[in-house]
């Protein structure tokens, strides 16, 4: 399973390097979300500083919808997903490979996005260990849930609208916990004992396990 996961992740990342969808389309979209929400809210520095973690994770959540959709769409074009089944690739490996590939892309996107948040909203960044670890598990959870629900929506003719409808409510604990963990980090809370980080870890582990177990059944339809 792990060998197949690495094979799929390497292939997907190579495809992303060629197509540059994340860099040329999803990242600019995430910045647009940051800017538009800043306009929609009170633009005074105090307000933006306060809501910066929430807007960051909202932009990441919206971006993740496009990323997981793209990751699964790679396999629906020209029947490539059926090809993987015929080649005998482990479905759990396909799932983990997709999660790994989207994770790498989203984590890189978050680094750029954080720079944007600092420039646009000017929050005082603190508690870096808690920020990094919570971002790691929040992203992992978003990727695991996203790939699962994106594959689930693949059979539908209304996939583009069905996926956000499924994923946004499911991923709302990540949005909430990610925001709270970063607010804790900004107020210099320590890594150990943060309850929101624990929620992010549980979410990521549960969806990774569920995806690895049930992805095969979803893939087989």
């Amino acid at each position: 399973m792990w060998r197949d996961a690495l094979l799929i992740a390497a292939k997907d990342l190579k495809i992303e390097l060629r197509s540059k969808v994340t860099m040329n389309q999803i990242l600019p979209f995430a910045f647009v979300v940051l800017i538009v929400f800043a306009f929609a809210l009170d633009t005074s520095p105090g307000t933006l500083e306060k809501v910066a973690p929430g807007l960051f994770w909202l932009a990441v959540l919206f971006s993740s919808i496009f990323s997981v959709d793209r990751a699964v769409a790679i396999e629906t074009d020209d029947g490539a997903g059926d090809g993987l089944l015929v080649y005998g690739v482990d479905p759990g490996g396909i799932f983990l490979g997709k999660v790994l590939s989207v994770f790498v892309q989203l984590f890189l996107l978050e680094i750029f996005l954080l720079l944007g948040v600092v420039v646009l909203y000017g929050p005082k960044i603190g508690g870096l260990p808690l920020m990094v670890v919570s971002a790691f598990f929040a992203t992992l959870g978003l990727c695991a849930a996203g790939v699962t629900y994106s594959q689930l929506a693949t059979g539908s003719r209304a996939k583009q609208t069905l996926l956000p409808l499924l994923l946004v409510p499911v991923a709302s604990p990540v949005l909430l916990a990610g925001t709270k963990a970063w607010q804790d980090a900004f107020s210099s809370a320590t890594l150990l004992g943060d309850p929101w980080l624990r929620l992010l870890i549980v979410f990521a582990v549960v969806y990774l396990a569920l995806g690895a177990i049930f992805f095969g059944s979803i893939l087989e339809g």
């Binding site: 292939k11 190579k14 495809i15 060629r18 197509s19 790679i74 074009d77 020209d78 029947g79 490539a80 059926d82 090809g83 089944l85 015929v86 080649y87 005998g88």
Partner: peptide, 17 residues
């Protein structure tokens, strides 16, 4: 499945590779 070869209407190829 891995012992079976299928050449169908879909090519199972990745366009960006």
């Amino acid at each position: 499945r891995h012992r079976i070869g299928l050449l169908g209407h879909e090519s199972f190829l990745y366009e960006d590779l």
